[in-house]
Simulated scan of single mutants.
Amino acid sequence: MICLGAGAAVILALSGPDFTLDWSHSVTRDRWWERWRADAAGLAPVEARIAGPGAGIDLPPDAVLRDGVWHFTPHLPPRPEVTLAASGATGGAWRICARGECHALPEDRGPIRLWQAADCDQG
């Protein structure tokens, strides 16, 4: 199960190992999209698409421009948890999608933590 929390509260629990995240870059306002996978090693991004590089972010050498969007494979190891910045400055909330359902994540509750657990209330 993929668990999402803000502060001490669990705000969402998702079943299944695959999910996507998308958001607007806080400076350039370009939309970013990532597909993630959860397995025994942790959470890892496996695919990414962005309309353009953001402030302070360079595209990796394997990025390919297709239909006006850069596509690439992030080369990051799995992590036990991921923290999403929720600054309120992006003009659009983070959105997480899994199994055909999408959820806007709150921007006013501080950083959002993602992790996996059998029971999100125990994580």
Rank of each mutant, 00 (worst) to 15 (best):
residue 1 M to Q: 15
residue 1 M to G: 15
residue 1 M to H: 15
residue 2 I to V: 11
residue 3 C to F: 04
residue 4 L to G: 00
residue 6 A to D: 06
residue 10 V to K: 04
residue 10 V to W: 05
residue 10 V to A: 07
residue 11 I to Q: 10
residue 11 I to R: 06
residue 14 L to N: 00
residue 14 L to S: 03
residue 16 G to L: 02
residue 16 G to D: 02
residue 16 G to W: 12
residue 16 G to S: 11
residue 17 P to T: 04
residue 23 W to G: 04
residue 23 W to K: 03
residue 24 S to H: 15
residue 24 S to G: 15
residue 24 S to Q: 15
residue 28 T to N: 15
residue 28 T to E: 15
residue 29 R to L: 09
residue 31 R to T: 14
residue 36 W to F: 08
residue 36 W to L: 08
residue 37 R to H: 11
residue 38 A to G: 08
residue 38 A to Q: 10
residue 39 D to H: 01
residue 40 A to I: 03
residue 41 A to C: 05
residue 43 L to F: 00
residue 44 A to T: 11
residue 45 P to M: 04
residue 47 E to Q: 03
residue 47 E to G: 12
residue 48 A to G: 09
residue 49 R to P: 07
residue 50 I to S: 14
residue 50 I to K: 12
residue 54 G to Y: 00
residue 55 A to N: 13
residue 56 G to P: 11
residue 58 D to C: 14
residue 62 D to Y: 08
residue 62 D to A: 12
residue 64 V to F: 11
residue 65 L to N: 03
residue 65 L to Y: 10
residue 66 R to L: 08
residue 66 R to K: 04
residue 68 G to P: 01
residue 70 W to Q: 12
residue 71 H to M: 05
residue 72 F to T: 01
residue 72 F to Q: 06
residue 72 F to N: 08
residue 75 H to F: 05
residue 78 P to Y: 00
residue 78 P to G: 00
residue 78 P to E: 01
residue 79 R to T: 12
residue 82 V to N: 02
residue 83 T to Y: 04
residue 84 L to M: 10
residue 85 A to M: 11
residue 88 G to Q: 01
residue 89 A to I: 14
residue 89 A to L: 15
residue 90 T to M: 10
residue 91 G to F: 12
residue 96 I to S: 03
residue 98 A to Y: 03
residue 99 R to G: 04
residue 99 R to Q: 11
residue 100 G to Y: 01
residue 100 G to P: 07
residue 101 E to W: 03
residue 103 H to I: 09
residue 103 H to R: 13
residue 104 A to L: 09
residue 105 L to I: 00
residue 105 L to V: 10
residue 105 L to T: 10
residue 108 D to H: 11
residue 109 R to E: 14
residue 111 P to Y: 02
residue 112 I to C: 02
residue 112 I to N: 06
residue 113 R to A: 05
residue 114 L to T: 00
residue 115 W to R: 13
residue 116 Q to H: 14
residue 116 Q to I: 08
residue 116 Q to F: 03
residue 117 A to L: 03
residue 119 D to P: 06
residue 120 C to W: 09
residue 121 D to W: 08
residue 123 G to F: 06
